[in-house]
Amino acid sequence: MKIELANVSRSFGCHRVLNNVTATLEFPHTLAWIGPSGGGKSTLLRLLASLDVPDSGEIRCNGQVLPREAEARRLQRTRVGIVFQAFNLFPHLSALENTILPLQHVHGVPRAESLERAAAILRRFQLESHSHKKPAALSGGQRQRVAIARSLVTSPDLLLMDEPTSALDPEMTAEVLDVVAELRQSGAPIVLVTHEMGFARRSADLVAFVAGGGIGESGPAETFFEFPQTDICRRFLGRVLKY
């Protein structure tokens, strides 16, 4: 997987969140974005997800320029899976119906086949006994696993996760990270924004440090944590790894 950013800028009001970001990130399977809050990680992920467009500059995924026009962006989104921090699921639909929705109504898969594929993926994540529950009846960890199942059921080319465990307690975090780690064996490349340094170190191929409106530095997980290049990154790691 190769992601290229060329002079990407994005502002909200007078606040410039991304400032002329230029970078090439190449990785076999998992890319982790770490960095302080407000540094632009989520904004970058939303641009990559085609949920948002940069004010200027362009982004390429495997050589393909991401579109700017609304309908083209919607089509692009049908080819990526996206998981947010929380509240991914539709509260009025059961876990199974949540999973069927994109298959049936976005990808036009017939109802019977949608049902089969959705049931199969929920089974894979050990959720079959919960498939008829509404999100309110599921634990936080189960909800995120259903959200991951829903984003994968359409066989996306890329899976994007924005702090998928930030709203969970440590036990549920482990439950969700187990699933993410398992996706390494099979499945699409993953870009994930995370505060779980241990997870980034063990499971990511490439780690990128996003701060101050740009990508500070990036490198393979091992060397990145052992030998941070820049002061700002060293300070950040020193703070978050202290406890």
Binding site: L51, R74, L75, R77, I82, F84, N88, F90, V106
Partner: peptide
């Protein structure tokens, strides 16, 4: 956002 994300 979630509806956008799944391509509705």
């Amino acid at each position: 956002d979630s509806a956008d994300a799944i391509g509705l």
